[in-house]
Write a protein that binds this DNA or RNA. Structure first.
Lengths: 343, 343
DNA sequence: ACCGAAGATTAAAACGATTCAAATTCCGCG
DNA sequence: CGCGGAATTTGAATCGTTTTAATCTTCGGT
């Protein structure tokens, strides 16, 4: 009991955080005035605004988010819902980078809610909306009649999704032009002499399966090439299942001689399957590239790039615009594939 | 102007969110009583507590986070700072999965703050601490005398970092036993007949560079094998630079015949460099595996696995414990490498 | 019947910001 | 000299919760 330093209820103490009251006392103004001055309210004299701003800067004042939120109902939070399981390699990261860029300097915070699609997709969103946990929502893996979109439109809650729906009512989205991707991929394979093209697509539950299919079908119509769409496996299947399937199919009489891979993992799995079947040399494919790793794995890999970082930026921009001006028509952007064939 | 439904200032309306007041009115109790009842305060009669809980459940009451936070100062937020640029493939995702698991059902929310290490690492942390944006902090890429650690210890702010420091004062951390990793990797290479081992390490600024080096040196002492640690490239170098370096080194007289790769990307880059130099057959390496992709790329790849998902879980657990019981000695965990050599 | 002590409930004051309505100051002009 | 109104500033209420310090009941004991 020498130096009685037992007076620390919470460890962290230090000087108390400056509040409006602090500034009010320092400047001799009322709290209300300070508040308006910082908001650059023209009803406050120019000189006062300057003085207040100066003091605020000096003592490093930052408004308390909780207080502001309680009063105004605005959270200054954008919520991104991500599925760390299903998202392809690097997808989440790239999206984060883009989004961060878009939100930079806007005062908006990014909250990432991981959610595993195996579980119901609606509850976490319902929680965020009814509990006012965020001012806007971003999610991926959109379905043709996505219940999240329906719910959020009903609630009038700002959101942007990655991927389109088939609802008639327009809503904000950012999507990759998967129709163009599949068309270009198929065209490339045909040009290389492929006779029978196999496309590995996402499950029925995702809208972009149809887009890919349309693109493929357009190429099929124009070139008359044979095609196949397996229903044993999808882009969401675990890699070992895809590989096993590919291995099995590789030696059948009508085995495909060209693949359209909707993702990098599936390219790898199919390649491995063909190799395991001793048909490695016959493996030919065009894949959608996200992280760019395929070209590292196999310098000869043919890929079409989807710019996810840009998608993140667009999602952020669209959402901010949506929050600021809800009455405007919903912003929608279709991203063109970046074709990177070696010629 | 038939049905005058022009009374919707904000688009979103619906029934007002239930608050303590709602329950108070329904039950005829005072707000204070309801608050205590929900907190299971023994000063409130058992019967009352039951009744209040029932009503709350019925109307789906959820306490307002902002209000609670304003009053108590607790944010119920854990902040994870991630660098989406430098983090190796799948690292961020795996960490998220683990962390989410640890936080599940605790009432804590996870906020991910992306931060690019090119910029100063301290400001975002300072903001979070002084602005009380979170109750606890998790970050990665720890330095020997990490300024973030120093700052957070000074402030008495709860945190756990991924990686250790060289400070004498103990603090919470979770780390992979990189010494053991490097030792095992070197041993494996020597057993396979390698004469000159090259280890690609992280930059000086990261603590685990030393750990890896120690492991390597221990193996060197025990076996007498030659070794080399390049200083032109590190694990953080862009892949093409690593590849160019590897290509150059591949044909020198004393070129290494075995590599220890601290990450998956570097394995790939060095492999490509050797291939480009026409020395593909001479490439032999043991790599640290995170996502497990290397075994997919090359079935023969030798890897030692680091379980990042588990690391995320541990980080979460440790942080929660740290927040709840700051007086206990700081929780620290060293994760053992998972050796997966084919025998 | 009254005292006092539990036992149960509640009024009221925070937390820090915004905002409506009201008050104050300042001018120019009749 | 005083009045009207514009220009500024401010008091007070509010958001939903927690918590301190009462207040109100009840009841056993004498």
């Amino acid at each position: 009991m020498p130096t009685g330093d037992h007076e620390q209820p919470s460890v962290r103490s230090g000087p108390p955080r400056p509040t409006l009251k602090t500034i009010a006392e320092m400047s001799g103004l009322a709290v209300a005035t300070v508040s308006r001055a910082l908001a650059d309210d023209p009803k406050i004299a120019e000189a006062t605004r300057k003085r207040v701003a100066e003091i605020a800067r000096l003592i490093g004042y930052e408004p308390d988010r909780a207080a502001r939120r309680l009063r105004t109902g605005r959270t200054m939070v954008i919520n991104l819902i991500l599925d760390p399981h299903f998202e392809v390699l690097g997808f989440g990261n790239a999206l984060l980078v883009g989004l961060t860029g878009a939100l930079e300097g806007t005062g908006y915070n990014l909250v990432v809610t991981p959610h595993f699609t195996e579980e119901d997709v609606l509850p976490p969103i319902r929680r965020i909306v009814t509990n006012r946990q965020a001012d806007g929502l971003i999610f991926t893996r959109t379905a043709p009649f996505d219940e999240r979109v329906r719910f959020l439109m009903e609630q009038g809650f700002p959101f942007v999704c990655h991927g389109r729906t088939e609802f008639t009512e327009p809503h904000p989205w950012v999507d990759h032009d998967n129709e163009a991707f599949a068309y270009a991929a198929a065209g490339r394979l045909v040009a290389q002499g492929c006779q029978r093209i196999c496309a590995l697509l996402p499950p029925e539950s995702l809208t972009f399966r149809q887009h890919l299919r349309y693109g493929l079908m357009r190429a099929v119509r124009e070139t008359g090439v044979e095609f196949h769409i397996p229903d044993e496996v999808t882009l969401d299947s675990p890699m070992d299942r895809i590989q096993a399937w590919a291995q099995a199919i590789a030696t059948t009489p009508d085995s495909p001689d060209g693949f359209i891979c909707g993702g990098e993992a599936s390219w790898l799995a199919i390649r491995n399957g063909y190799r395991a079947a001793g048909q490695g040399a016959r493996f030919r494919a065009v894949a959608k590239s996200i992280s760019g790793i395929l070209s590292q794995i196999d310098a000869g890999a043919e890929v079409i790039h989807e710019d996810i970082e840009e998608a993140g930026r667009l999602l952020g921009d669209h959402l901010l615009r949506r929050i600021a001006e809800p009455h405007l028509p919903p912003p929608q952007t279709l991203q063109a594939p970046v074709i990177q064939f070696r010629d």
